[in-house]
Write a protein that binds this DNA or RNA. Structure first.
Lengths: 193, 193
DNA sequence: CTGCGGATGTGTACAATGCCCACATTAAAG
DNA sequence: CTTTAATGTGGGCATTGTACACATCCGCAG
């Protein structure tokens, strides 16, 4: 397809840079991603990426945007996998699981200034959170709605952040999921009744 | 005292580097902190810091350690400021308030690999969390203790992360504190007994 | 007091990086 | 076919992290 032409022009360097950058990020930490390394991996000169991204932050923002879309899709998928009471648990597990599976990307999405400064990334983040909010909206009486929504969101995000930071350890994935279930049910059980 | 001698030797360069680095971090984002800028601010040659920190990550870890100690102290102080039921609310407000007041440092503490790799920093983080854990221990029956502790911690940490990310807005500090109180009381209020 | 050794700070150096500029190539619009 | 804008190349610059060799100084043994 697009890989069959080694000519002067790449074909879709923009996308190639994005995937190269995501690969690099997955292989190491944030410092592994340099514009020049991305260019090398895409088989292109060090400056070529600048034709598609005004600066490094723009590339990082594009990566974060992709990350938010993937996270959103994972949440939506989890939301369809169970009956009502379990849905939020599954979404929490999916949220944390995404972080575990893509730690450096997760850190980029929530830790790097670029996600705040780029409107496209902020929009993707908002979309992602809207999925959580919709589910939470079905779980609680109206008068507690706002506080509960905020709390549930914070709970899930905090779980993810702490697990990613190694502050909460688990032997394997299923132990982790069990822990998440236990925590979420304990915390939400208090509110539900 | 130690600032009165402009001679060849600095006196306490180790501490000077730490405070210079913390100043730089407070003035901008993480990228503002370069070893060379730290050296400049301390009025010393670019390589002098290497006599006290083996590499840049070691300096960052020292900064994170300091951050955890300050956060711990803020939590301990909050814990003494009210009667039993309010203590956890005040601790949550202090936790988020620390993040608001030191966003870049907070990001370092919870986002950067150095806090995982340096034992001293990990220890400081554990100490900090122990303060939260102790308070939580008084709020809940033993069989729910683990899940509740994790949940409460995640809740507070998630609140801080979301507020810092601009995902939860508040007009001013007292509106923010009110929101935190509302969320915390909703999530764990009626279980106190 | 002398001189000596280890701790601390300086200088030079190098590779890598982000980014700027001028130039080359090419695909597509006229 | 010609022109033109998009895309990729090459060279260059300042900054950064860090290694190595040298300078300076504090404290201690004689």
């Amino acid at each position: 397809m697009s890989t069959s032409k080694p000519g002067y022009h790449h074909g879709d360097l923009r996308a190639a840079c994005l995937t190269a950058a995501l690969e690099l990020l997955a292989e190491g930490d944030a410092s592994t991603v340099s514009l020049r390394a991305v260019a090398r991996r895409a088989g292109v000169s060090p400056n070529a990426p600048y034709r598609h991204y005004p600066d490094k932050d723009a590339l990082l923002a594009a990566m974060a945007t992709r990350g938010f879309h993937d996270l959103r899709d994972a949440l939506i998928h989890a939301d369809t996998q169970a009956a009502d009471e379990d849905r939020f648990v599954l979404m929490a597990q999916a949220y944390v699981g995404f972080g575990i599976g893509n730690p450096a990307l997760f850190g980029l999405m929530f830790g790097h200034p670029c996600s705040r400064n780029h409107p496209e990334t902020s929009a993707a983040a908002a979309e992602t959170m809207a999925v959580l909010a919709e589910r939470v909206g079905t779980l609680v009486p109206a008068e507690q709605h706002d506080a509960f929504l905020t709390g549930a969101w914070a709970l899930v995000h905090g779980l993810a952040a702490l697990v990613m930071d190694g502050k909460l350890a688990a032997d394997d994935r299923s132990a982790l999921d069990a822990m998440i279930r236990s925590v979420v049910e304990t915390m939400l059980g208090r509110v539900a009744h």
